[in-house]
Structure formats: C-alpha cells, structure tokens
Simulated scan of single mutants.
Amino acid sequence: MAERAPAWVEYVMRAGYAARGVVYLLTGGLALLSAWHGGSGEDKKGALSSLFGQPFGEVIILAIAAGLFCYGIWRLICGYMDLEDEGSETKGLVARVGQGVSGLANLGLSFSIARLALGNGSGGDGKEALTSKLLAMPFGQIIVGAVGLTVIGAGLAYLHKGWSEKYRENLRWSPILEKLSLPIRLGLMARGMVVAIIGGFFIFAAVQSDPDQAGGLSQAFDLLRSQAYGLYLLGFVAFGMLAFGIYCWIEVAFRVLPTRQRKGTLTIAQHLKMHA
C-alpha cells in the first residue's frame, strides 16, 4: 500500500483527537452533573466556558481551540488525500465528503472557541444564525433539510461504528483495548444518538421554516430530559459523552493510518482475523 500521508499529519491528527477528548470529557461531566442536580446540559462552548476563572483557563481554552483546528485540518487532508483508503467508489466518496464537512465544522468551532477565549464571542452554538442564512437562500428549506439528513446520516454512522465494532479497523491492537470495548462502544453510540437528534432539529427547522428550531448539544440534552425517565436518559448519554472523550484519547495513543501503517503493526481487526 502506498504511503500517501506526510509524517506531520500524524502529529496533527493526534493533537486534534486530544483536544476533542478534553471537550467531550467536559461536556459529559457537566451533563452528568445536570442529570444529578438538575438544570440544563451544556454544549461544547458552554462546557469550555466553565474554564473561565480557573488558573490559566483562557490559555487552556486557546490550546483546545488550536487542537480542534488541527483536527479540522486533519479531516480535510484525510478526505482529500484519502488517507483512510475509503476509495473512489460512491460509498468511499460519500465518506470522504463527510470527512471534509467534519473538517470544516471543526475549523469553524475552533475559531469560535478562540473568539470566546479572547472575549470576542458568546457561548452560543450559532446554529440558529447559520440556519437563518440558509433558509434565506433560494431553495433554503431544501438545503436545511439536506443538512439535517446529512447530520442524521453521520449520527447513524457513529451508531453503526459502535454497534458493529467497526472502530477495530482503525486502532492498533493492544491487550488493554480488549478491556475497553464497552466504553468505546457506549461512547460511539451515545455520540451517534446525540448527532442524530441534532439532525432532527435541522429537519424540523426546514419543515417549519423557522431557524429557532435548529439546535445543538444543549437542546438535545433538554429534549432527552423532557422525556419520560428523562433524567436516566440524560445520565446515560452523559456517561456516553464521557466514554466518547475517553475514546478520543484512545485514538491519540492507538489510531492507525492505513496509509502510514508500520510494518508488523496490526489493527484490532487484523489481530482477531489472524487468531480466529
């Protein structure tokens, strides 16, 4: 297999996953406190806002913003250069476009978080403003509906990745990871559930032609809380967000790029196939 990935891409990738891990550990922790003590769960920027007033809080937020910038760059390069060997067939192209969209979204989030740290932004998600601009465009409702379907598709992909344990194809085999299968699967599936709910908000905003119906993590948490046994649902998803944060740190240590896989290194999937 040709080595297409420049060496520096791995460092950018791991910095990005580390920043993501911090964000989701904070988000999951605050959501868990919300389920335990009452109140609303926080979105990503709201969770990071909790660092204000802490020693070096603004510096930590800027470091996280830089990490998410790295993650965004990594996803863009990954999709463009096909570093995960998705291929050029329809299914592969869809996956690579999804990687590019993820990259752009994380770049936007990193700039927004940097503005927040520098005192030039708010803790809001900005999804309502984006939806409002899209709805004002020709065929705006169709565009917003398509965005919603795309986001739901991403959520279902996370659910499938966790349920089918497809993540085994991208992680280097280690005995440690055999003991972490449950939190990895829980994290991916909880992440998928929340992403699918956010996609549903976009669909509802398109149908109602109302940008205020669009929402992010905090609105997804509020929706879960409002259901029967909502505190238990919110608690489950909060644990899932914490587990997803742990999974991101597992990616930092064990992520394997197919296009830079070192000789003798086996993924979990390859190890299991050899010992089947």
Rank of each mutant, 00 (worst) to 15 (best):
K45E: 00
G100M: 08
K166V: 13
G216C: 05
Q54F: 12
A154F: 14
S181E: 15
A47F: 01
A47I: 03
C248G: 07
G199V: 02
A65V: 07
L156I: 12
D85H: 08
L182M: 12
G245K: 00
M241F: 14
A105S: 11
K273E: 15
L104Y: 10
I142H: 14
V144D: 02
E89H: 02
V9R: 07
A228R: 13
A15I: 09
K127S: 15
I61W: 08
P258S: 07
I73S: 07
L223R: 13
G72N: 04
S132A: 15
L104W: 11
V94G: 00
A7T: 10
T131H: 03
M241Q: 10
R115N: 13
Q141M: 12
T267A: 06
A129Y: 05
A214Q: 06
A269P: 02
L51M: 13
W173S: 05
G264Y: 10
P138F: 09
L118Y: 10
H275A: 12
R255T: 04
I113M: 10
V59P: 01
Q141Y: 10
E3K: 15
F202S: 03
I184D: 00
A276C: 13
I77L: 13
K161F: 07
Q54T: 13
V237Y: 01
I64M: 06
R4S: 14
D210C: 01
F111D: 03
G41A: 09
F56Y: 11
I198M: 14
N106W: 05
G123P: 01
Y247R: 03
I73E: 02
L177I: 04
Y229V: 10
G153V: 02
V195E: 06
S110V: 09
T267N: 05
G108Q: 03
E251P: 00
V94Y: 01
I268E: 04
I60R: 12
P183W: 07
A220V: 05
D82V: 07
F139M: 13
Q261F: 08
